[in-house]
Design a protein around this nucleic acid. Structure first.
Lengths: 239, 239
DNA sequence: AAGTGGTCTAGACCACGTT
DNA sequence: ACGTGGTCTAGACCACTTG
């Protein structure tokens, strides 16, 4: 439907198929605008997308080039993901198990993270995820009850995010994350089967709605030997 | 000079000063285009920048709003930074100390990360950073010698990145990072003064040039109690 | 000098929310 | 019905690189 998106898709496909080889020029914007029967502005907008994805780079006066290793880096723009054995996880059995599900008044730290008043309650959920029967991560999650009315344990087992999007009509606007190495707690030792001197990778996260309202605070505590956090950081603005 | 950038700067300033309050509408694009004497397309491009920075969000048919907590999240778009005591580090003495500086043939892993051939040499640099006399991080860094001809220990103590930009005329195009919690090595225990069961936060990083050439491979090993990694992730494309 | 990508315009139509 | 932001055009000028 949207022209610049369709053009971006086609060019991306050509790069992936090798029709536009890495480290070479692709046709200039005027040529492409004639090929696709659109204005040059529309072609440029398509190119902006591919540049944000890290597939191409442009030199004024020179032309538009396919990056070396475009295919390696071609994961979604600014994608961030956990990686571990999760990578080749297709054949494994992934389980989620709720350890606890309560409503409570949060402590000061969580109140500040979620921008709540003194008497605003939150859901406090602790879940353990196992892969192939082995523990992987414990997630401690807090939602303001006011934002997710009618949350049940059943919904938790499906997708809270889908529920919010479908039933409440809300969208996400980003997240703040903090990653640390920490020593295992008693909780970690019990559920993650950590040894005393096994480190734990903790990802602390505040997720926001589109309008900036804090919506979820969570801490994921990951076994050090099975999970890592990866970031693809693409330079967006040249000076 | 560039109009849409100047307009973005002015609007950003108004948000920061509270002239456009959080969680309220700002003037529509037609009004703003009249105020600044530009076309609406130019105003929209300015708004695109502020949306990427997480300061505003837009609803078709409704208008453009300042996000809640715009000022909190207003750190540079997609900024990533180490944080720790580094936060309030203005008053402290930061030192860097080179532990070793060699040229060698890299092992397979580094050869793959830097996309090198069998006989391409690299600089192998190990540096320790101290704050207020206490060890903070050990950085193991590898550069292909072919990309940084004439690197000296003196340049290392200033800024390698500036040297590359100034003297070699090269620009950066992004990075790939992987963050893990690991157990301390003998090296860590010796230089970071880690105890046997202190975890270490390792940041593995491949930095690329603008054209996609891998340029630096490094591993930073951080004391767990003084450093963490933070990420601001802003949603860019709504579906 | 020619060709490239970056910016900007004035106007048009559309999709969507609000009224 | 009206106002909003999103897309798109045809053409213009500029900054820059390359021959």
């Amino acid at each position: 439907m949207i022209k610049y998106e369709m053009i971006a898709n086609k060019i991306r496909e050509r790069i992936q198929k090798g029709e536009y080889a890495e480290d070479t020029l692709i046709p200039d914007q005027v040529t492409l605008s004639k090929e696709f029967g659109v204005s040059r502005m529309t072609v440029k907008k398509a190119m902006d997308i591919l540049a944000m994805e890290g597939l191409i780079f442009r030199k004024r006066g020179s032309g538009t080039y396919v990056k070396k290793n475009a295919l390696l880096n071609s994961s979604d723009s600014n994608a961030m993901e956990y990686e571990g054995l999760t990578k080749q996880l297709s054949g494994y059995k992934v389980e989620g198990k709720a350890i606890s599900f309560n409503v409570e008044f949060p402590d000061e730290k969580i109140r500040e993270a979620l921008q709540l008043e003194k008497n605003d309650p939150v859901y406090n959920i602790v879940r353990l995820r196992l892969v192939d029967g082995k523990p992987y991560v414990i997630e401690h999650t807090y939602f303001p009850t006011a934002l997710v009315p009618g949350l049940t344990e059943e919904i938790l087992n499906k997708s809270v995010y889908e529920f919010i999007h479908q039933n409440l009509g809300l969208s996400f606007g980003g997240a703040y994350r903090k990653i640390q190495a920490v020593k295992p707690s008693e909780y970690d030792k019990k559920y993650l089967a950590c040894q005393e001197n096994d480190p734990v990778l903790e990802v602390e996260q505040i997720v926001h709605l589109e309008d900036g309202t804090p919506f979820e605070y969570s801490r994921s505590r990951n076994r050090y030997d099975t999970r890592s956090y990866t970031i693809v950081d693409i330079q967006r603005r040249q000076k």
